[in-house]
Design a protein around this nucleic acid. Structure first.
Lengths: 213, 213
DNA sequence: TCTTGTCGAGACCGGCAGTCTCGTCAAGGC
DNA sequence: GCCTTGACGAGACTGCCGGTCTCGACAAGA
């Protein structure tokens, strides 16, 4: 993001003049994250971020090209990078862990509401749309990797449609996450895992082991 | 939508004065739909609708409360109300038909791009958000109805999580529809049906009967 | 012909993203 | 210790857009 860290960056002349105020930088990111997480649906204004950070608007535009860039940077900054890809040797365990962790992060961390707000902002900001697209692509790739290991181990047949599997997970997640009409709890994570792996026969047709969920 | 069709609507006094211009009404809806379907991602302005329809802005606001209402009305107007709920007696057939019809409508009718634009608009319009919420709820209920009939006929166990099943379908649909990173073709519809019903064992583990898809 | 209410046109307001300017202040060079 | 450089906070300003208000013209009934 901060491509302008060395403004002209031309040649060898050492930097002169007042240095960048790191405190202001942090204050902006923190303020943006605070507003992202707190604003329940309401849009976020540049002036609000600047005011919340105790900073002039120009300082903000000196280091970021647009509002969307600030918001995305704030999210990435605090983005715990939760939900790493587990590798226990069991696809079922890996997948269940991954799904449950994703659900938990959405429900119990400030990243959840922030991401919801960011998606709304992205609807009007082509720049942000593109960044969100690569973000989701990276997440899909990570899950696909886990599933591909399952195929290598023979836990899934070689002709499995991994892309469909991944999209069924993230599709359900985003659908419920954004609409909020149905829960994203552990019971759902378990049932979804079973459905995707299909080992016990899909959404119904489960033995007593999975029936109590 | 047109709650103001009889402006004051108070008492018995018959309508006097110039009557509503139906041609203008149609021109507005048509213009809105045209713009909705054509604007690839770009937002739609009220002035653009009025200009496209050859109409004053005030005429527009006389009959609709907001921009979102016009857009939604335009979509509902042309909304073929495609994708009715089939009832052939076979859950697998019904579901596959439903899913394929939904995919087709998104790909091959002007409703597709229009809906995409509408979702983007809804991100900034609470009114429209709410309307879209009830819209999706109705669609979910229709699919759930089809699945419930399958349970009654014993094609699915009684403890099946119908809500999860429905959301897996619409989740995948919206996810791919809005991101556009993967196809929504008939092959996908078939595989998704098999996965949801799980009769052949989920995404992989299918016998030769379903393997050719 | 008079009243009523719609019509197209366009001025206007308020909010917001992004730019520009200004006086101030810190870091380094001399 | 002074001077240049560039970041800083503050806020005026522009342009765009959703929505409102006003105006003269016009149509339908009384």
């Amino acid at each position: 993001m901060n491509a302008a860290a060395q403004p002209p960056s031309r040649g060898e002349r050492p930097h002169t003049g007042r240095r960048r105020n790191e405190a202001a930088h942090r204050a902006i990111l923190d303020a943006a994250m605070r507003l992202l997480a707190a604003s329940e649906g309401a849009p976020i204004t540049i002036d609000a971020i600047a005011r919340e950070a105790g900073v002039g608007k120009q300082t903000l535009y000196r280091w970021w090209p647009s509002k969307g860039a600030v918001l995305l940077d704030a999210l990435h900054d605090r983005a715990d990078h939760d939900v790493p890809a587990p590798d226990t040797g069991s696809l079922r365990d890996d997948l269940r862990t991954l799904i449950a962790a994703t659900f938990d992060a959405a429900r119990h961390t400030p990243t959840g509401p922030a991401l919801r707000t960011l998606v709304r902002e992205a609807a009007r900001d082509p720049h942000l749309t593109e960044m969100l697209r690569t973000f989701t692509a990276a997440r899909r790739a990570a899950v696909r990797e886990v599933a591909a290991r399952g195929v290598e181990r023979g836990e899934l047949p070689a002709n499995t449609d991994l892309d469909l599997m991944v999209d069924q997970f993230y599709g359900l997640f985003w659908y419920r996450f954004l609409l909020g009409h149905a829960p994203l709890d552990h019971a759902t994570a378990d049932r979804l895992t079973d459905s995707l792996l299909g080992g016990l026969g899909g959404l119904g047709m489960r033995g007593p082991k999975g029936a109590g969920r």
